[in-house]
Structures are given as C-alpha cells and as structure tokens.
C-alpha cells in the first residue's frame, strides 16, 4: 500500500513535526525547515547556503542535512530549491500570538506589501488571512513572500492563494 505522501504529495503530521528544531532554538529567531522526504538526484540546496550549514552530500541522492542550530534563517535557500520545499519560520516576529513565515511564490500578479492574502495549507485549503510583510523578488523569477500569520498555524500554512490574473 502506498503511503500518504506517495499517493497525495501531502506529508503526514509526524513527518511535518520532525522538521522543527528544539524549543530553545525556536525561541531564538528565524530558522529553515526542509520538507524533502524523497531521495532524488538533486543538490542545489547545498550550494545555496552561504554559511555551509547544509552538509555536502556524499551521494547526490541523499536527503539534505541542515544544521538547524546554526542556521541563521537568512532564507537564501528558499528560492534556490527546485522543489520549493524550504520555508523559514520566525516565531520571535510580531506579537505574542504571531509569527512570520517566508514561502516561495511563483504566480502573477504578485501581492504587495501590507496586502492581506489568503494563506493555504499543504492541501490548498484556506487556513487564515495573512499580512504580507515583504515581497522579496529574486532574479530567478521565484519570489519569496514574508507573511505575518497566527503563531498556531506555523506548521500548517505553506502557500498563498494565487491572485486572479488580470
């Protein structure tokens, strides 16, 4: 029997929770989570980390190994992962019940700073409204959206509903 991710592309709760660092690290500031579950021949993330915190792979099919304790949360990896599988979470951002998430977004038109957008989960379901804190355009055409979201949804929100095309 094929597993959930093999059938749907959606990871299980256990898989998702396994991407989080320890509480102490989470309280310190922004960190990357990598949602890469399959051994495929792919390695651009390794070179994307300016600090070398994603370990060089022995075999190009290896899963990425990120040193989350040292990760600075710079987010350079987000737009360079071909799988759009890397996100930055910052639980120290905003108020008590708020957090920031940075996600890759490849749709036009782009939202603008301070817009309220519909934040979606991994199955495309609406989770909450989110405020766009920053729109970081990359030269590769992959934009990174910085979103202010309710803290309780840091494990749920992973996309923004594309705006209708003009």
């Amino acid at each position: 029997m094929a597993s959930q991710i093999e059938r749907t592309g959606v990871p299980t709760k256990e898989q998702i929770e396994s991407t989080l660092p320890g509480d102490e690290r989470r309280a310190k500031g922004p960190y990357a989570v990598i949602e890469c579950w399959q051994e495929i021949p792919c390695d651009p993330c390794v070179a994307s980390c300016p600090f070398g915190y994603i370990a060089p792979m022995k075999n190009i099919n290896d899963l990425p190994k990120l040193d989350q304790e040292s990760c600075t949360g710079c987010g350079n990896c987000i737009a360079l992962c071909p799988g759009l599988a890397i996100f930055i979470i910052d639980e120290t951002f905003g108020g008590e019940d708020e957090a920031m998430i940075r996600i890759p977004h490849e749709f036009a038109p782009l939202p603008e700073k301070e817009d309220i957008v519909r934040a979606l989960d991994r199955e495309g379901n609406y989770v909450a409204d989110a405020e766009v804190v920053r729109v970081q355009k990359g030269k590769s055409g992959c934009t990174v959206l910085h979103l202010l979201i309710p803290k309780k949804f840091i494990l749920d929100i992973r996309a923004v509903e594309p705006l209708p095309m003009r």
Binding site: E106, F107, A108, P109, L110, G141, T143, M165, R166
Partner: peptide, 9 residues
C-alpha cells in the same frame, strides 16, 4: 487566447 502577465516568462 494569449497568456499575459506570466510570473516567469
């Protein structure tokens, strides 16, 4: 129909 306003192209 032409595609206008593409995010990449």
């Amino acid at each position: 129909m032409r595609i206008e306003n593409h995010p990449i192209l």
